[in-house]
Structures are given as structure tokens and as C-alpha cells.
Design a binder for these strands. Structure first.
Length: 455
DNA sequence: ATGTTC
């Protein structure tokens, strides 16, 4: 190991983690050019190569590497939240019809297609413009852009280097949720833990919010597939001895490393554009049910990325490439590119709970820079495999249980609902409390679901 | 996560 491997969680969470998390985060700590430590967040679980919930930063001047497996298949998968001016009571008064209409308007499921069909020129513009492109195309507003990491557009994307196959898979998939743990949820703010931060974020008890969790769909997956393979084949040529073949990587300063960076950044823009289009679709439904209502974007966070950032290491500011896979950036007050109302209290850290359970809004804690290079957890984290969950529950049973608790779930896949059963996940409250105690982020608000449009 | 196995 070149640096320590640190799991940041309470004892019970650590005991509950698969032994593979320990192995994987130890392997990451062996990679060339890694600085400070390899971190596992409180919600960490086994992943491809790197654990999901893993954070690792590399210095290009010390032979540091970039790894497709350290970003993940779903490049720039993330969460955004719209803080509406509606109350949960207003949503409840039309809950059935509203859920039905939302599920009709938001394309969901494996291979789902939207109403947008991009030609080659449109695809290139989208891959370099991100959410900024989407706004120019009429999806959402210019005001949204300040509330997105990178102001909605990841610089340094190279659409020309994205394979024809990756582009083909995405041509008809813009503005779609996809499947797995992706969802659009309407939630109620139930509890506030930090009044000042809640005020800055525009959150108050009884308020309805819309949360969107999805990523870069077929394009990100295709890029991940291609570069995992290419990096695995190329690693020996760079003199990199891999502790695990799944940790395939390339030096940041190599041709392959630079090519992956540009292509991955195009994938980030795809995810930002996708969430921006879904925001527009959700606002359309809100407007039909509640004419004149407002649903401004609180913030959009990505939790599968590698980003170039400045961090202080051993008293010296260094330019690092920070992999966060199933981990959220967590800038404290005054850090980074946050607009004034957010900068004062820290970056919103949006934590999607499992279907039917609570979700959380946290605020970046300035201690997080020292603890984990300004990173935090991203969700509940799986406690049970999809296969085991599908054997344990049925989709219709879970749907009925949730309906009895006032939560309406729609999905094209009954098996998908079973796989995402609340019992298949860790206790998100425990994860969040653990993150707060460690200084990764502070609790601001707890949310309970009303309507869940599931992928 | 994923045209759920190039």
C-alpha cells in the first residue's frame, strides 16, 4: 500500500460491510500516484474494482492514474432537487392522478426512449454543452445553471473522441430515467435540523420537493465498457502492476488517460443534460396540476466522476484528479463554484434514500476537506444483492405495503420494484448520522416520499 | 448502472 485505506463509518456499518469493501479499498491504496488515503464512505459496498462509495485522488506529477472503474459505468450519475412552492398537502389532494401523469410523462425503464432524437451535430453539441445545451434547446431556465456543478457544463469534453456506438446508444435516450435505482420522487420535507442552512436552501417543513436520480444512460455505460477493456489491456505497457484486473487504469498524463478524461467529461455533460430535460418534463406536469407554481432547482450533484481539483496535501496545494464513485462532492462554506446563497452554508449534499424510505439534504462541512478531500456519502447503499432481493420480495407486495403508508410507486418493472425493496438497503439515517459525526457533511433536512416514478 | 451476455 502506498497510502492508508480508511473506512469512514460507525462500527455497526463497518461490521455490516462486505469483506470485499476492505479488499477493494486496500487495492485502491496500492495504485500509482495516489495521495493522502483511499477512502470508503459510510454507505460503501462492493463495486467493480473500486467500491461504490469510494474516493481516491491522484497526482499526475507523481505518476498518478485515472481509472474507468474508479468512475463507474454510469458516468456522472447524480441527484438534483427542485424546491417547489407547493405543500405536501397539495400533492396529496391529487396524489393518484398526479402520480399517473408523472409516470406517463417521464420515460422510465431499460432502453426507455424520449421524445428527443439527436443527429450527429446535435449529439456533439449536447456532449460539449451539457445542461447549458439543454437550456438553449428550451429545457429549463438559465437560472438553473448556477445550481449545477460546473455551472451545468463540464469543460474539456471531447465529443469527437466518443465512439459511434456510444453515441448511437444515446441518440433516442435523452430525457429518460433508465432503470435500477434511478427514480423521480415527489417528497415532503418532514424535519429541519439546521435552520440557517434550510433557509438558505429554501426548504421548510411541509414543503413538496421533486428529486431526480439518474445518469448518462447507454452512453455512459458504453464508454465505461470500452475504456475498462482498453485500460486492462494497456496497463502492463505502462508498467502498472494491478492488484486486481478490475482496477484497470492509465497514467493521467498518457494518451489513453487524456482520451478517457475527455470522453468521460462528455459523459458528464450527457448526464447533466439528461437531468435538465427531465426537470423540464417534471415542471410541465407540475404546471398542469398547479398552474403558476414554481419549482426552482436547489442543486444538482454528480456522484460518479473524476474531477481535477486543488487540494492541500502536506501543506502544499496540489492539482489532483479526484475519483468519486458513489460519493458526492461536499464543499464546505466558501469553497468552489457555489452561488452566494449556497456558498454561505456549504454545498447541498443530496442523499437519495431507498424507495419508500426517507431521503436527506446535507450541507458540505468544512472539516470534510481534511477528513476525505471534500467528499461525502451518496445514498443508503445496498445491503443485499438484487438477486437475493428479488427472491425475498415481490413487486406487487412492496407496492401494496408502500401504498398503505401513503406512498404511490409506479414502474414498468415489477421485478425492479422487488430488487429495490427498502429492506435491501442499509439504514440511510444511520449512514447520514455517521457522515455527520465524521465531519463529512451536516444534516439539514429529512424528506419522506409521496410519489415515486421508478426506473 | 446496462439494447440486464460481444
Amino acid at each position: 500500500m502506498r497510502v492508508p485505506a480508511e473506512i469512514i463509518a460507525d462500527e455497526d456499518l463497518i461490521r455490516g460491510m462486505d469483506e470485499k469493501v476492505r479488499q477493494q479499498i486496500t487495492n485502491v491504496a496500492c495504485l500509482p500516484g495516489i495521495v493522502r488515503a483511499a477512502y470508503a464512505m459510510p454507505d460503501a459496498h462492493w463495486g467493480y474494482g473500486f467500491p461504490i462509495g469510494g474516493v481516491a485522488a491522484f497526482d499526475p506529477d507523481q505518476g498518478g492514474v485515472i481509472s474507468a472503474g474508479g468512475v463507474g459505468f454510469d458516468i456522472s450519475c447524480g441527484v438534483r432537487m427542485l424546491a417547489t412552492d407547493l405543500t405536501a398537502a397539495q400533492i396529496r389532494s391529487k396524489q393518484q392522478d398526479f402520480a399517473h401523469e408523472m409516470s406517463r410523462s417521464i420515460p422510465a425503464g431499460v432502453g426507455s426512449q424520449g421524445h428527443i432524437h439527436l443527429d450527429d451535430a446535435g449529439m456533439s453539441a449536447m456532449l460539449s454543452g451539457g445542461a447549458r445545451w439543454a437550456v438553449a434547446e428550451g429545457y429549463g431556465t438559465v437560472e438553473d445553471l448556477a445550481r449545477i456543478e460546473e455551472q451545468g457544463q463540464m469543460a474539456g469534453a471531447t465529443p469527437d473522441m466518443v465512439s459511434a456506438r456510444a453515441k448511437r446508444r444515446q441518440r433516442d435516450e435523452m430525457g429518460t430515467l433508465g432503470s435500477g435505482n434511478h427514480y423521480l420522487e415527489v417528497q415532503e420535507v418532514t424535519d429541519i435540523f439546521d435552520e440557517a442552512a434550510a433557509l438558505a436552501y429554501g426548504l421548510s417543513p411541509g414543503q413538496a420537493v421533486v428529486t431526480i436520480h439518474c445518469g448518462s444512460r447507454g452512453l455512459g455505460h458504453q464508454i465505461g465498457t470500452e475504456y475498462l477493456r482498453e485500460m486492462a489491456l494497456a496497463a502492463p505497457g505502462y508498467g502498472i502492476a494491478l492488484p486486481d484486473r478490475e482496477l484497470a487504469c492509465a497514467p493521467i498524463d498518457s494518451e489513453l488517460g487524456q482520451r478517457y478524461l475527455g470522453v468521460m467529461r462528455a459523459g458528464i455533460n450527457c448526464a447533466l443534460a439528461n437531468r435538465q430535460i427531465l426537470t423540464h418534463l417534471a415542471r410541465d406536469v407540475l404546471e398542469r396540476f398547479f398552474p403558476g407554481c414554481k419549482a426552482p432547482l436547489l442543486y444538482d450533484v454528480s456522484h460518479n466522476t473524476c474531477k481535477e481539483e486543488l487540494h492541500e496535501i502536506d501543506g502544499e496545494e496540489r492539482r489532483l484528479f479526484v475519483h468519486r464513485k458513489g460519493a458526492t462532492r461536499s464543499f464546505g462554506p466558501g469553497m468552489g463554484d457555489l452561488p452566494p446563497p449556497l456558498s454561505k452554508v456549504g454545498q447541498p449534499v443530496l442523499i437519495g434514500g431507498s424507495m419508500g424510505t426517507e431521503s436527506w439534504v446535507l450541507a458540505g462541512d468544512d472539516r470534510s476537506e481534511t477528513v476525505a478531500l471534500s467528499s461525502a456519502c451518496h445514498g443508503a447503499g445496498r445491503a443485499m444483492s438484487r438477486h437475493q432481493a428479488a427472491r425475498t420480495w415481490t413487486g406487487s407486495g412492496i407496492r401494496k405495503d408502500l401504498a398503505a403508508r401513503g406512498i404511490i410507486v409506479t414502474s414498468p418493472s415489477r421485478r425492479g420494484i422487488a430488487e429495490e425493496a427498502p429492506g435491501a438497503y442499509k439504514d440511510v439515517t444511520r449512514v447520514v448520522e455517521s457522515a455527520e459525526r465524521a465531519g463529512l457533511a451536516r444534516r439539514v433536512a429529512r424528506l419522506a416520499p409521496l410519489v415515486c416514478v421508478k426506473g
